[in-house]
């Protein structure tokens, strides 16, 4: 008798959370995914996915991917350089603590306020724009720069990508053992040889994995782009946003397909991140 009742009772403790997860995380996602494979009449179809290859949608995804990739690559390179500088560069140790704290703040300072900060700085009457024009006589808008553009958006994204990179890669850099550098040195290697043959290969999975994570991070971001471009720039999440608001695609099931494609892209990026992470954890212990 006690044995019969024990199992369900134990599971009852986790039930509220599991019901919550099913109702508000798994079912909604599953609903979107299955919706992508059915038409309005409820028949199984691949037509929705095929419709994704309309030029406007393909272009939106291409732009999204380019934007996410460029912001991820720049975020990765600059964030890595700063993380190496404050961890191994012989700077005062206080700078490292300050950098880490600031990264925690800046990586969470995304979305609408971030775009305001950039407009106030590099908009047509922004702080730096005016400073360059009045003090140095350089009119950046005259030179073709525009904050509401691909590169403007990339710059804004990089603002939250760099700190995220610093937060994730610093533990990996700390995992580089002093003995590896010293062992390579007594074996005759120079600093450059050490970085090329040991440090970078050891960090490689972490770098690649974090790149994938930054990519997914930028790909799902909507608010920054909307606040900056007023939903003008046609990137995939904005397309979906507009579709949800007003069915601009004239086909609700195409919206499902759009969302499904987004899940696939961010899902694969995250999978790469997790695989790479396990690989590097195997090395650095």
């Amino acid at each position: 008798m006690p044995n019969l009742r024990k199992l369900p009772l134990v599971w009852l403790g986790a039930a509220p959370f599991l019901i919550y997860a099913v109702l508000f995380l798994l079912l909604p996602t599953a609903n979107i995914i299955t919706g992508a494979f059915f038409n309005a009449e409820g028949h199984l179809t691949l037509a929705n996915l095929a419709n994704l290859f309309k030029p406007e949608i393909v272009n939106a995804f291409a732009l999204s991917i380019r934007l996410s990739l460029s912001s991820a690559v720049f975020g990765c390179l600059i964030g890595f350089a700063i993380a190496v500088a404050v961890s191994l560069g012989g700077l005062p140790p206080r700078l490292r603590a300050v950098t880490m704290t600031f990264s925690g703040v800046a990586s969470n300072f995304a979305g609408v306020p971030l775009s305001f900060a950039y407009l106030a700085t590099l908009g047509r009457v922004g702080f730096v724009t005016v400073l360059l024009r009045d003090t140095f006589g350089v009119n950046i808008y005259g030179l073709g720069f525009n904050m509401i553009s691909f590169w403007g958006l990339t710059m804004a994204y990089v603002f939250f990508q760099i700190p995220l990179m610093i937060l994730i890669i610093t533990p990996a850099i700390d995992g580089l053992k002093r003995e590896w550098r010293e062992a390579s040195e007594v074996l005759g290697a120079t600093h450059v040889q050490y970085w090329r043959m040991i440090a970078l290969p050891v960090l490689w999975p972490s770098l690649l994995g974090t790149l994938a994570l930054l990519f997914a991070n930028a790909f799902g971001a909507v608010a920054t782009a909307i606040a900056l471009t007023g939903s003008m720039l046609s990137i995939a999440p904005i397309l979906l946003f507009n579709q949800i608001r007003g069915d601009v695609l004239q086909d609700p099931h195409l919206g499902y397909a759009l969302a499904f494609a987004m899940i696939m892209i961010t899902g694969v990026s995250n999978l790469i991140y997790i695989i790479m992470r396990t690989r590097s954890e195997r090395w650095i212990k």
Partner: peptide, 21 residues
């Protein structure tokens, strides 16, 4: 002389093997 010019061999306490090789 710098360590890489001395032609010396050294064994460390632990975990000094290059993990990627």
């Amino acid at each position: 002389l710098r360590p890489n010019q001395r032609n010396i061999g050294m064994v460390f306490q632990a975990y000094a093997l290059f993990p990627n090789l």
